[in-house]
Design a protein around this nucleic acid. Structure first.
Ligand SMILES: [Zn+2]
Ligand SMILES: [Zn+2]
Ligand SMILES: [Zn+2]
Ligand SMILES: [Zn+2]
Lengths: 146, 146
DNA sequence: TTGCACCTTCAACTCATTTGCAAATCAGCC
DNA sequence: GGCTGATTTGCAAATGAGTTGAAGGTGCAA
């Protein structure tokens, strides 16, 4: 969830090639943005950020999906009906399921520390719910809007 | 979250009028479906169910939004990029924040018992997170798909 | 019963995302 | 370093969920 250290251009290229993706300029730009992001990013945000550099929306979109298909990123809807993409960091690949929080009011998204939400086993809960949950999303008011 | 006892047509009409909505035939049909549903229902599901009875998609949609605006139902995205509507039952109006679970695989939605998820206060979590959370959504594999 | 504000319908519209395709670009190979 | 085939890009056009406008219909309070 925290930003990884800055990666060199070659690091990014390597990351793509290892995922069997060609290291093209727009692809690198998208990957870099995801690396720089602290929280999941929407397509619109990324496209707006990259448009000035001359990259097409459709290209950005395709690349986000390509990265997702290749297992480098995740695409999800955090409960606000917006697709957001988040890089799967090396260290997270097998364990990271940190919860996300979205503000009802301003839409701000934040990544919560792993372990800040606990699935409890109660008399009425489905069997082994805890082991079956892969993703946790919370909605409410952020500190600022509260 | 469990289905309420069957309501008579008059009960439904009363419910609408108390919310300052006219008791029209399509509106009653939509309200009845929401009453009958065990879990949140998508617009598409409702429209498909009501189309054979002759109701227009736009009418169903507007009614779902009307019911939501009037405070009788809630509209949300459970993390699967689908709008779903759930009736706000009398008894739930002030307290109900039961979590929802969506299966990644088959899309099945279920309502979980209140209290099956606990927001914990950890060193790193935002202040008073627990009090600020209004909605909890989980995703994973349902018992059947697991 | 009447009047009118609220509703329904249908088609047309919006806007995010996806797709088709020719031209551009990449990666491997002389 | 150039050559070549497979991928990828950019643009424009298609798609599809969701929304809206307008005209006629209906619930309901008086
Ligand atoms: Zn906020
Ligand atoms: Zn995150
Ligand atoms: Zn399932
Ligand atoms: Zn529910």
């Amino acid at each position: 969830m925290a930003r990884a250290g800055t990666l060199s251009l070659d690091d990014l290229k390597t990351q793509l090639r290892e995922a069997d993706l060609r290291a093209t300029a727009p692809r690198l730009a998208v990957l870099r943005c995801l690396h720089d992001a602290e929280t999941p990013v929407s397509h619109a945000e990324l496209a707006d950020k990259l448009a000035p550099e001359g990259w097409d929306r459709a290209t950005v979109y395709r690349n986000l999906n390509d990265l997702t298909d290749a297992g480098l990123a995740r695409k999800r809807d955090l409960g606000d009906h917006v697709w957001r993409f988040e890089l799967l960091r090396q260290t997270d690949k097998h364990s990271d399921t940190h919860p996300h929080f979205v503000c009802d009011e301003c839409g701000e998204v934040s990544c919560l520390p792993e372990g800040s939400v606990e699935i409890k086993t109660t008399r009425n809960s489905p069997v082994r719910l805890k082991e079956r949950v892969h993703e946790i999303q919370l909605k409410g008011r952020c500190e600022r809007c509260n």
